[in-house]
């Protein structure tokens, strides 16, 4: 079963085409590293795959949900890693995980424990990236989406993601 499906999905702002029509399909548990000509197109495509940006033409389905109609159901399935990863606005990773667990309505103590476990496993990565990845994996998403991810990081994420499918742009 496809966790992510795009059918001639594109995004335009005014008269500017940012993402040209794209068709793709990603099965549950699968991985896909999509190459885009422009960095901006890659970032917008990743946000479309995460249900954050709605396509202006064509269609996107995430776990059979349409982000235009059921954005909340879509976002429960997706973990999103922005590029560049933002700095931690809190004093500690624990506070950041507690903030995210409240937004996703998770049990705080177990979410913080899980977040710290993933965060510590990513000790070789820059702290901001480690925090963004562990935050995205906090609610055990079915689809992990990363903006403009390098090949080495894609491989590392593929090992860390558990059962989640991985979609990244580059």
């Amino acid at each position: 079963m496809a966790i992510l499906e795009m059918r001639r999905a594109s995004f335009a702002r005014g008269r500017t085409n940012i993402v040209a029509p794209i068709s793709l399909q990603l099965e549950e548990g699968g991985t896909l590293h999509w190459r885009c000509e422009l960095a901006q197109a890659g970032r917008v495509l990743a946000r479309m795959a995460a249900g954050i940006v709605k396509c202006t033409a064509g269609s996107v389905f995430i776990g059979d949900y349409d982000p235009k109609i059921q954005p909340v159901q879509v976002k429960r399935l997706v973990g999103f890693i922005p590029h560049p990863p933002p700095s931690n606005p809190f004093d500690s990773p624990q506070a950041y995980f507690a903030y995210r667990s409240d937004l996703w309505n998770l049990q705080c103590a177990s979410a913080v424990e899980r977040g710290m476990r993933i965060f510590l496993a990513l000790h070789a990565q820059p702290p901001n990236l480690a925090l963004a990845v562990s935050g995205a994996l906090l609610h055990e998403p079915k689809l992990l989406v990363a903006e403009n991810l390098e090949a080495e990081l894609f491989d590392e994420l593929a090992n860390l993601r558990g059962a989640a499918a991985l979609f990244a742009t580059r």
Partner: peptide, 15 residues
């Protein structure tokens, strides 16, 4: 854009 809170809240399952 650069607001770390907005990036997280945009991705959160909230109406």
């Amino acid at each position: 854009n650069r607001d770390p809170f907005a990036l997280v809240e945009d991705a959160a399952p909230l109406f």
